[in-house]
Simulated scan of single mutants.
Amino acid sequence: MPPLTTALEENSTADAVLNLQGLLKVDHLTFHILNNPSAGIDNPFVRTTYPEAWVSHYLLNSYSAVDPVLQRAHSSDEPFFWSDLTLTPEAEQLMEQFGTFDLGKTGYSLIHTDAHGRKSVLSISRRDDAGWAGHVDALHDMLVQIHADLHMKAVSEIIADTRGLPQLAPRECECLRFTSQGKTYSEIAIILDLSEHTVRSYLKLARVKLNCVSLAQAVAKAVRYKII
């Protein structure tokens, strides 16, 4: 199994974030599902490689209210370089503190919104900007897929915690979602660039995890609990 697939399929979101940091050759990576009660997200979900000292400092100073990355994410769906952000005085102070912790201010963020209106932000950053634009450009298509996979993994974890349901892997969620759209095994295999046997295996695992006797029942349950 390729390293990226392993990082996303076989670990928790927290572990996946840590593994992806090295695989993507970035200093830090943060995945954040924004708070949205109307979409069933009552508390922010954040997994990051930033040190605990910075996370505590960030929370104690309520920086989320002025964080320019989060502010941009709330108002836009387009990816952006941090260098293009317009900073308020409060945001400038936040970025100065960011530098004090030697975390680097060279970053790039992507936005993902699912069919249920749940929005997440995936941010990567480095301490220096040498070759940064080229590095991001080379990674961009991969980052879009990674972000979608992390989003599904995180949503599965949130639902598992609140509903007592098992966690599904991103590919299991994807296969269920395409099945709900009427796609056949072979069509899903083509879409996801997988073998038909692998697609059948993912769907069987999803059905077993959801404690369903049929695939149709598994799809209905996943839809009912907004897993897909």
Rank of each mutant, 00 (worst) to 15 (best):
P2L: 04
L4T: 15
A7I: 04
E9I: 13
S12P: 00
T13C: 12
A14H: 09
V17N: 05
L18P: 00
N19P: 02
N19G: 10
N19M: 09
L23K: 06
L23C: 05
L23T: 09
L24E: 11
K25G: 07
H28E: 08
L29F: 15
L29A: 05
N36E: 15
P37I: 03
S38M: 15
G40E: 14
G40W: 07
F45R: 06
V46N: 01
V46S: 07
T48N: 12
T49E: 02
Y50D: 15
P51Y: 12
E52K: 05
H57R: 15
S62N: 11
Y63K: 05
A65H: 07
V66S: 01
V69D: 07
R72C: 03
H74C: 08
F81N: 07
W82F: 10
S83A: 10
S83Y: 09
S83W: 11
D84L: 12
L85A: 07
T88D: 06
E92G: 01
E92K: 13
Q93L: 09
Q93W: 01
L94N: 02
M95F: 10
M95I: 05
F98H: 06
G99P: 01
L103F: 14
K105Y: 09
G107K: 01
G107N: 08
H112K: 06
G117S: 09
R118G: 00
R118C: 03
R118A: 01
V121G: 11
I124K: 02
R127W: 11
D128N: 06
A130L: 13
G131W: 11
A133W: 11
G134E: 09
G134C: 06
H135I: 14
V136Q: 03
A138T: 13
A138D: 14
L139W: 11
D141G: 08
L143P: 15
V144R: 02
V144F: 01
V144Q: 11
Q145T: 12
I146T: 01
H147V: 08
H147W: 10
M152P: 00
K153G: 08
K153Y: 01
V155E: 08
S156D: 03
S156N: 03
I158M: 12
I159T: 02
I159H: 00
R163M: 12
R163G: 10
R163I: 04
L165C: 03
L165N: 12
L168G: 00
L176V: 10
R177I: 02
F178P: 09
S186N: 15
S186H: 11
I188Q: 11
A189W: 04
A189Y: 13
A189M: 07
I190V: 14
I191Y: 08
L192G: 00
D193A: 10
D193T: 13
L194T: 14
E196Y: 07
H197K: 13
S201K: 07
L203F: 05
L203A: 08
L205H: 14
V208Y: 13
K209T: 03
N211P: 06
C212V: 06
V213D: 14
V213E: 15
V213I: 05
S214E: 02
S214C: 04
Q217T: 04
A218E: 08
V219H: 03
A220M: 06
K221A: 04
K221Y: 00
A222I: 09
V223R: 04
K226G: 08
K226L: 02
I227R: 02
I228Y: 05
I228E: 04
